Amino acid sequence: MTSIADLRKSYERAELDESASHADPLQQFDQWLNEAITGQVPEPNAMTLATVGSNLRPSTRIVLIKGYDAQGITWFTNYDSRKGQELAGNPYAALQFHWVELERVVRIEGVVEKVSDAESDAYFKSRPLDSRIGAWASPQSQVISGRGVLVANAAKYAAQFLLQPPRPPHWGGYRLKPDNWQFWQGRKSRLHDRLQYRIQPDQNWLRERLAP
């Protein structure tokens, strides 16, 4: 049986050099995300979201990025979920993308705010019908007696709303406005490339190399 401690991989696919990277972290992210998509990395849009509760205990979960621009990184979820409650009490959060096949990690930190109702409405209408019903059916993060609760709720709301379920008041989008980005490229001998971008008082980005 192989020991977990003996599992190792040599990272040799690419490099990340300051002279070849973008001065704007959003452009660097756009390049890497598109390379993950065109490279057919499994679920390139999946990201880990980390929040901190009032008890100072961090928690993580996987969510899907649904948009990004100069304003920030956007995803949609249940506002009453654990992550929603934690963001209501502490709006600072972190995101992480791990594209294993490309030997790359992107880490993003910043403050989170809800997107506008109009933006949430527009995205909700674009979702498949089953997903829109599911937003009503699942009391996310709450204890339920069994899967039958979800099935019964889905049937109830499908009959109530038919083909036009409205957006639930407890469901919508969040946007993280980054103030710190880190781009990690695996390299041989664990001498990885790691570039950090920090926002400055003049709103320009300072690019720095960090030791791995």
Rank of each mutant, 00 (worst) to 15 (best):
R107D: 05
A94R: 05
I133M: 06
A36C: 05
A20F: 08
L16I: 00
D117A: 04
Q140A: 01
S81K: 06
S54A: 09
P168L: 04
I4Q: 09
W171Q: 05
L26Q: 08
I133G: 00
S141H: 11
Q160R: 14
W184F: 05
L64R: 12
R175I: 04
H170E: 12
K188T: 14
T48K: 10
L150E: 12
L102K: 13
K66L: 01
D6N: 13
E208V: 12
R8D: 03
E86R: 04
T48Q: 13
E43R: 00
G173Q: 02
H192P: 07
Y197D: 04
D69C: 02
Q27F: 03
Q164N: 14
T48Y: 02
K9T: 07
W181K: 09
S19C: 01
W75K: 09
A155D: 12
L163C: 08
M1E: 14
Q140G: 07
Y92R: 13
L195Q: 08
V149I: 15
Q31A: 15
E86F: 00
G148S: 15
Q142H: 11
N78E: 10
G173I: 03
V111T: 15
E113R: 11
F183Q: 07
G110N: 04
R194V: 08
L64V: 13
P42T: 15
P91M: 00
R57T: 15
Q160K: 14
P128A: 02
G186E: 02
K177F: 00
T74L: 04
K114Q: 11
R13P: 00
L176K: 08
D121A: 04
L176M: 07
Q85K: 10
P168K: 12
E12C: 08
L163I: 13
G148E: 15
Y11D: 10
V111H: 06
L195V: 08
V111E: 14
P128S: 02
F76H: 13
P91H: 02
T48L: 11
P212S: 15
D6F: 02
N55S: 11
Q31T: 11
R104H: 04
P25G: 03
A118F: 01
S10D: 14
S54Y: 01
S189G: 11
D69L: 03
R209M: 09
N78S: 05
G110T: 06
V52E: 05
P25R: 01
E86T: 04
Q164D: 13
Q85E: 08
L162E: 13
L95G: 03
N90I: 01
K177Y: 01
A159N: 12
V63W: 08
R82Y: 01
V106P: 07
I199C: 09
R132L: 00
A36P: 09
H192M: 12
D69G: 05
W184K: 10
Y79W: 05
L129E: 14
T48H: 13
Q142K: 10
A23V: 12
L206W: 10
A135E: 13
Q96C: 14
L206Y: 07
Q200S: 10
E15R: 14
L26E: 04
D30R: 10
V115L: 10
P91R: 03
S138A: 06
N45M: 03
K114W: 01
K156P: 00
D179K: 09
L64D: 08
Q160A: 15
H170A: 05
A93I: 01
S54Q: 12
Y157Q: 08
E18M: 11
